[in-house]
Write a protein that binds this DNA or RNA. Structure first.
Lengths: 183, 183
DNA sequence: TAGCACATGTAACTCGTTACATGATTTG
DNA sequence: CAAATCATGTAACGAGTTACATGTGCTA
């Protein structure tokens, strides 16, 4: 009766607040889904599976369009399953980074062109970093409060934000170094 | 006539030296495939596709077992296709990190247990970092030579190694910070 | 009034993993 | 002599993307 990774991503969102399928799909799209993404065509069938497993329930609250709007809530069993999953070790994830794969063959590309690619990538990392820094400013003042209690959703959200900030900074620095080597 | 990402991963390896399917599969397995992985059941059909596209050729050099051993070489067309792919912008990659997804729901886990998970993850990053540092030591003395010419495969290999080193260091530091917050 | 946001679903396809299948050579 | 390594392939399944399908209400 274990859910898929996508299922736990949905449960992780629903454990914070109730949402409908559309809102869940939005939350799992770039740039909002920071470490998991899914399209709506994957979300709706998964919600049906989670409901069959009794991890969530829905209440119809009639909306626009040809179908009803379904507002989903996590159940006590869903919360237990989510906590058990979060508290078990993550299987080692196979790395998959198409950009780095291109860098591995960058020696075949004319250096000035290669440098352009790296500078474009640098811009993407700087944009994402600026976005994360804005999120951090939005939390400012609450930091000490957030960190004082690791059993609040805000603690987890701040921990993942710190990770994003750190990742984008290191990626930016690496791009700067490589662009300089290709000058 | 464009190859898949896996196809370009294989071409990137074959552009450096000829290999058989078994050796290519080994190179794409952890911990050797640092930014792309694949199992042998995916590699063999892809090699057939690359050969149909005339990006590679093979010569039979009879080996053990019930089938012949096929040694693959990249063609001039394969090298051109690889260079064109490496020189074009990478599509923005959807982030997918199951460990970070767990951290997002870590507030539901008893803090002492949560801390154990983070310390285990820290150990994994430290092991990978030690591995990368060994690779760097193996290259020592050649650094200046490697960086002087960006059109050699060694330049690309060193650039990706620097990225791996930077990534593991930032991941380690983040784990140390979070484990400390959970003490 | 055209387009976008809201809202839910299905179908066809690709990519990737695990399991099935075979058999010679080397090492403990 | 048993197990691991070398070596190549197919089959079944699950996960994920793109396209198909429908229709309301709001805004430029």
């Amino acid at each position: 009766m274990a859910a898929s990774t996508l299922g736990f991503a949905l449960l992780g969102l629903l454990a914070r607040k109730s949402r409908n399928g559309y809102e869940l799909s939005q939350a799992l799209r770039r740039p909002i889904g920071y470490f998991w993404t899914a399209s709506h065509s994957q979300v709706y069938p998964e919600l049906a599976r989670l409901e069959a497993a009794r991890y969530i329930t829905h209440t119809v609250i009639d909306g626009p369009g040809p179908r009803d709007t379904k507002r989903y809530d996590i159940t006590a069993a869903g919360r237990r399953a989510l906590a058990a999953w979060a508290g078990s070790p993550a299987p080692p994830a196979p790395e998959r980074d198409e950009f780095m794969l291109k860098v591995y063959s960058l020696w075949l590309v004319e250096p000035a062109r290669a440098r352009t690619l790296i500078v474009e990538q640098l811009a993407r990392h700087e944009a994402q970093l600026a976005h994360y820094e804005q999120l951090e400013r939005d939390m400012r003042g609450e930091h000490e409060a957030l960190l004082s209690d690791p059993t609040t959703p805000q603690f987890s959200a701040y921990a993942t934000l710190r990770r994003g900030l750190s990742f984008e900074r290191h990626a930016r620095d690496w791009c700067v170094w490589l662009a300089d080597e290709l000058r």
